[in-house]
Write a protein that binds this DNA or RNA. Structure first.
Lengths: 141, 141
DNA sequence: ATAGAATCTAGAGTGCAATCTAGGTCAAGC
DNA sequence: GCTTGACCTAGATTGCACTCTAGATTCTAT
């Protein structure tokens, strides 16, 4: 699950397709040390990724899509790179992020309720032509 | 609900406190035409807000916190400013945003499940000292 | 062998949403 | 009256996360 001994060699373009990230982003991630290892190169200097890199990037996508900043992913990557023994720290980082995501969902749900309320008000108004409860252009004097 | 005839006059600092926005942000919003009216000024040129402005800003906060970009809020504000008659457009804008928020919540929930799965795996590992299913520092050769 | 596509590097540029700076003006309390 | 804090404008700067540029090199298919 983390070898490239067999035939597992992917170009940067392949990885871009597999992860939805752009090639520029992949190079950027490498500069930012977001990978779990130095990505090996061909004799000519082109990057050779493995399936494990793609799997890691897919997890990164989940973390980032759920709002973890690059710096957070970088910290997690650094922990993994520094080898076994720091699993409690990795767990703490993930738990913290999980809390953050739950809070974010709660906030969004609260906003959604407000917005949905507005939608209902507007629907009612648009259906029967009243203006009660709508924002109207206020006077500026 | 939208007058300043009584005693309803708020300074920019008051509004900042009431909405959680910074004074810089409030001036920025005004430049961006996010308000429903031109904010009136004192003889000396200082902004005088009303309660209706605060209420609008609180709705703006909900929209923005739920991911609507400034440009979207601006479009909504422009519709309201341009007076009655475009309620169907306002409704469409809000419905569209509601869909966006629901999608966002669904995405976050999906990510949360992945992350929670990772947390469970790590918890198990940290509790009983195995390394199954964890990322380990991969070899780079 | 060679054309064309993909990749390389270093660094500049983009977009969003503020946020801050500089150099003043205004207003409230003592 | 005067100090002190809040406020004013215009414009520069920040931070994040890419995204693109230019010019050179490498790989692939014919």
């Amino acid at each position: 699950m983390s070898e490239q001994a067999t035939e597992d060699a992917l170009s940067i373009g392949d990885v871009a397709k597999a992860t939805g990230l752009g090639v520029h982003a992949l190079r950027f991630f490498e500069r930012e040390e977001l990978f779990l290892r130095p990505i090996p190169r061909t004799a000519g200097g082109q990057r050779v990724y493995g399936l494990a890199d793609v799997e890691w990037l897919l997890l990164c996508n989940r973390l980032r899509d759920s709002g973890m900043p690059i710096a957070g992913v970088k910290r997690f990557a650094r922990l993994v790179r520094s080898g076994p023994g720091n699993e409690p720290e990795r767990l703490a980082l993930l738990e913290e992020h999980e809390r953050t995501v739950r809070d974010k969902i709660a906030d969004l749900t609260a906003s959604l309720e407000i917005i949905h309320g507005k939608v209902l008000t507007y629907r009612k108004h648009v259906e029967d032509g009243t203006a009660a409860g709508l924002w109207s252009p206020p006077p500026s004097p």
